[in-house]
Amino acid sequence: MNTLIDIVVFTMLVTTALAVVRTHSLFATVMLSGVFSLLSALLFVTLDAVDVAFTEAAVGAGISTVLMLGTLALTARSEKPSSHSPLIPLLVVLVTGAVLVYGTLDMPAFGDALAPAMTHVAPDYIARSPAEIDVPNIVTAILASYRGFDTLGETAVVFTAGMSVLLLISGRRITRAEAEKGATGNAKGTDDAIGDGSDET
């Protein structure tokens, strides 16, 4: 049963990916990327990663689609056909793919309970967390307690990325002509335009 679900989800994922390559409408591309995220959330559930599936469904299919649509509203609706031949990119992709496949040949088989990833710290976390943390969800226990430093760093990265977006595209829009006029004319005008960017969104 599980294998059947896997096959169906994989087929749909590959089809979606190929559709992204083929289409020239950016709106369709963005929607397909949302579909891709939702399908991958489905795959995460079959891999027992319920927390990850939850996050992917909320983030990938929700927020990221909204942000990309917001970008489309500010940029363009359709892609212009590329003038380059697709041969060189295809070659690059095939060579990289071949190298990656070669790399997987050494890997332990899928679902192997004796794989190195299963025998190092992971069993230790599973065995110790009932006594030490006493929280049913092991993922939360590791995320917030055992690897609290890691999560602090990730939170800081999310915060920094948010602030960078704010610096880039918030506040009044300065056109090139305005900026040049400001640079030659009154320097104070440009100062103000940059200065009140932060709070006026």
Partner: peptide, 25 residues
């Protein structure tokens, strides 16, 4: 199932959307 990859990827997804937003900006 090994919970450690779940923890790492869960945070990576949220960081991923934040950096995607930066790219879109």
């Amino acid at each position: 199932t090994n919970p450690l990859p779940h923890v790492l990827i869960l945070t990576a997804i949220v960081v991923g959307i934040a950096t995607t937003a930066l790219g879109l900006a």
